[in-house]
Design a protein around this nucleic acid. Structure first.
Length: 481
DNA sequence: TGAAATGTTGGGGCG
DNA sequence: ACGCCCCAACATTTC
C-alpha cells in the first residue's frame, strides 16, 4: 500500500486535542496533519454565531492554535465557502483525506453532505466522527423506533447503553506536512464582534479554550458537585458547573465530563452513582436530549414542535421587549438575570427560566424573540439547547412546562435568593433595601424606600406589568389552545 | 424544573 | 368541662 499523504483536520465545534476522534485519527494515520478552521457564518442560515459567541470563538481558536504549536503544528484559518476552501486546501497541502467531527445543526448537516459529495467524486477520502455527544443523535430510540419526546424515558433509555470510552491520548509525536498552506489570522476573519468594549468585559469571567475548560471542570468537582442538588438553584453561588460554553465549542468532551464526574463521585461514595452525581449527569443528558430533538425535528428553532401553538398570537411590544433586554422590567430577579447576561455573557439556569417565563407568560412576547436575544448575548449560545429551553418555557415544545405553570418572579426570588445577594450584585441601585423588600420594592413603605435611596420610577423602574393581572391574562389566552 | 385556590385538621382561646 | 370558632399548618385540587 502507498504511504498516506497529508490529512486535513477540519475543526468545528471540537476545539480541543484530547478526546478528539478526528484529530487522533489524522495523527495516527501516518501522513502529515493539517489542522484548519474555516469561518463561514453565511453558511449557518438564520443562526450565524452571535456577538458573544464570536468573542468566545476567537479566543478559543487562539488557545487551540497555541496547543497545536506545542505539537509543532499550525492552525490554518480560512474564510468563506467551506467546500471551496477545503478543496483548495487539499490541493495546496497535497492531502488525500479530509476528516472532521460532526455537527448536528440542520445547516451544518447540509454542509457536511456537500463536503462528502464533493470529495467522494474526486476520490479524496472523507471521514467524520461524533465527538460532541455521549450518544450520537439518532442513536437513542423508543421500542417502536421513534424519537423520545419526554425526558425521563429518554434518560432511562440512555442509562441502558454504556457510554463508550474516550478516544485516547494525543500522541507525543505527530508528523508535520512538508509545506503549510497560507492562512489568515482570526482577527482578520471578521470574528471579533463590532463592539469590542462590550465583549472586553467577558475576559474577567471566562477562560476560553481546552485549558480553561479542564480547570473549570476540576473546580466544579472540587467545590460544586458535592452540594450540586441544592447549590445549582442558588444563582448567587458558583454551584453550577459553568461548563456550557466549553461544551458548546467542544473544548472538553462530554465523555470526559461524564467519566470524571462518575469517578469523582464513586471515590467519595465507594460504589455506585451517588445521588448528587446523578443529578448533575441528568443535566448533562438534558444537553443530549436537546441535540437529539434538534436532530429529529430540525424546524424547531423557528417553529413550535406542538403544532397547535403555531396559531398563537403573540404581542408585538417593542418597548417591553427592550425593557426586558436591558434589565429594566421592575422585577428585581428578572432584571438581575438580564444584567448578568449582558455583563458576563451567561445567566444562571434558574434565572433563565424565571426571565423566560416573564417574557413569554407575563408580557406575552414570542419565545422566538427571547431565543434571538439569548442567541446574540450568550457565550454558550447553542441552537439545540436554546431551542429546547425556550420551547420548554413557552410550553410549545417536547416535555414542556404546561401552559398554567407560570413563575412568580417575587416568590422565585425569595425562594432562591432569600438574602438578596444576587439582586445586590446585579441591581446595585436596590442594594440598600432590606431583605424583606428586595424582591418587591414597589410594595415597600415610603420610609424604607427613602432610607435605601430608592425612588420608584426614577432610580429603579416600576414593574412594567402587574404579575397577578398578567397571570390571569396568560391563563385566559393560553387555555384557548 | 409552579402557584393559587380550596379543603382538611387540630390546637387553643373563650364563652 | 364542653362546644364553638378561629386560624395556622398542611394537603389536595385546579389553573
Amino acid at each position: 500500500m502507498m504511504n498516506p499523504k497529508n490529512t486535513i483536520v477540519c475543526f468545528r465545534n471540537d476545539l480541543r486535542l484530547e478526546d478528539n476522534p478526528a484529530f487522533l485519527f489524522a495523527a495516527g494515520r501516518g501522513g502529515g496533519v493539517v489542522p484548519v478552521f474555516i469561518w463561514a457564518p453565511e453558511e449557518e442560515g438564520a443562526w450565524a454565531p452571535g456577538a458573544a459567541s464570536r468573542w468566545w470563538l476567537a479566543r478559543s481558536l487562539e488557545s487551540l492554535r497555541s496547543d497545536l504549536n506545542k505539537k509543532g503544528l499550525r492552525l490554518i484559518v480560512r474564510k468563506g465557502g467551506t467546500v471551496k476552501q477545503l478543496a483548495r486546501l487539499v490541493r495546496e497541502a497535497d492531502a488525500d483525506c479530509v476528516v472532521w467531527n460532526r455537527r448536528y445543526e440542520p445547516a451544518a448537516r447540509k454542509r457536511e453532505r456537500e463536503i462528502e459529495r464533493h470529495f467522494r467524486a474526486k476520490r479524496i477520502s472523507v471521514l467524520s466522527f461524533n465527538a460532541s455527544f455521549l450518544y450520537a443523535p439518532g442513536q437513542i430510540k423508543t421500542k417502536t423506533g421513534k424519537p423520545f419526546q419526554v425526558f425521563t424515558p429518554f434518560w432511562n433509555a440512555c442509562l441502558t447503553q454504556e457510554v463508550s470510552a474516550g478516544f485516547g491520548k494525543v500522541p507525543s509525536r505527530i508528523q508535520i506536512p512538508l509545506k503549510w498552506p497560507q492562512g489568515i489570522s482570526p482577527d482578520r476573519s471578521g470574528l471579533y464582534p463590532p463592539c469590542a468594549d462590550w465583549a472586553a468585559k467577558f475576559e474577567r469571567y471566562w477562560e476560553p479554550g481546552a485549558g480553561g475548560a479542564l480547570k473549570q471542570l476540576k473546580r466544579f468537582l472540587r467545590k460544586g458537585l458535592s452540594d450540586y442538588q441544592k447549590g445549582r438553584d442558588i444563582p448567587s453561588d458558583p454551584g453550577t458547573s459553568r461548563l456550557s460554553p466549553h461544551l458548546h465549542f467542544g473544548e472538553i468532551s462530554p465523555k470526559r465530563v461524564w467519566r470524571e464526574v462518575f469517578r469523582h463521585a464513586a471515590r467519595a461514595k465507594k460504589s455506585g452513582m451517588s445521588k448528587t452525581a446523578e443529578v448533575y449527569l441528568r443535566q448533562l443528558v438534558w444537553r443530549e436530549f436537546a441535540g437529539h430533538l434538534l436532530y429529529h425535528f430540525p424546524e424547531t428553532p423557528e417553529r413550535p414542535l406542538r403544532e397547535k401553538f403555531s396559531r398563537f398570537i403573540w404581542r408585538e411590544d417593542g418597548k417591553s421587549l427592550k425593557a426586558w433586554q436591558k434589565g429594566r422590567t421592575g422585577y428585581p430577579i428578572v432584571d438581575a438575570g438580564m444584567r448578568e447576561l449582558w455583563e458576563t455573557g451567561w445567566m444562571h439556569n434558574r434565572v433563565r427560566m424565571i426571565a423566560g417565563s416573564f417574557l413569554v407568560k407575563d408580557l406575552l412576547i414570542s419565545w422566538t424573540e427571547g431565543a434571538r436575544w439569548f442567541w446574540d448575548t450568550l457565550v454558550d449560545a447553542d441552537l439545540a439547547n436554546n431551542t429546547l429551553g425556550w420551547q420548554w418555557v413557552a410550553g410549545c415544545g417536547a416535555d414542556a412546562a404546561p401552559y398554567f405553570r407560570i413563575f412568580n418572579p417575587v416568590l422565585q426570588g425569595e425562594r432562591f435568593d432569600p438574602f438578596g445577594k444576587y439582586i445586590r450584585r446585579w441591581v446595585p441601585e436596590l442594594s440598600k433595601l432590606p431583605d424583606a423588600w428586595i424582591h418587591k420594592p414597589w410594595q415597600a413603605p415610603a420610609e424604607v424606600l427613602e432610607a435605601a435611596g430608592v425612588e420608584p420610577g426614577k432610580t429603579y423602574p416600576r414593574p412594567i406589568a402587574d404579575h397577578a393581572v398578567a397571570r390571569q391574562r396568560a391563563l385566559a389566552v393560553f387555555s384557548r389552545i
